[in-house]
């Protein structure tokens, strides 16, 4: 059996977090290749349905990242909206049989390439402990 290699989907806001992820690259900070980034303009764009959809399709983890609270969001308060939505969704996840730790909300600024890399390293480690997405293991998915 090969070692469990989690797949993480990241929804990153264009202005801070996506730029932070780029900075990690420019600074050649290495992190494990488990995340696939989807760029959105603001973390406030992330509909809980996207996250659920990702989990249903077998994602082992989902990262939502945006500009720092309280006031770094490029669109005034999208990060607060993301915060509320993700917090609520975490409560709901359990009902679907998904550990809430698989979903993370983080704030990464454009100058925090190292922070982005650390978050990914950390998340991969955590999720490896949790094992594969239970929906995937249970075969209940619609992939």
């Amino acid at each position: 059996m090969t070692e469990f290699d989690p797949k993480i989907v990241g929804f990153l806001c264009n202005w801070c977090s996506y730029a932070g992820a780029d900075l990690a690259g420019v600074s050649r900070i290495q992190y494990p290749p488990n995340i696939r980034i989807v760029r959105v303009m603001c973390s406030g764009r992330v509909d809980p349905a996207f996250i659920l959809e990702a989990f249903k399709s077998g994602a082992d983890g989902v990262l939502v990242a945006g500009c720092h609270l309280p006031a770094d969001c490029h669109y005034i308060s999208g990060n607060f909206k993301a915060y509320r939505r993700v917090t609520l969704l975490k409560k709901l996840l359990q009902q679907f049989g998904i550990e809430p730790e698989r979903l993370r909300l983080e704030w990464v600024s454009a100058s925090e390439g190292d922070r982005f890399a650390t978050i990914i390293k950390d998340m991969v480690k955590e999720i490896k402990k949790l094992g594969p997405n239970p929906l995937r293991a249970g075969g209940k998915t619609s992939g």
Partner: peptide, 9 residues
């Protein structure tokens, strides 16, 4: 988002 997961399930 889902296209990156193809092959997982």
């Amino acid at each position: 988002g889902l296209a990156v997961l193809r092959g997982v399930v």
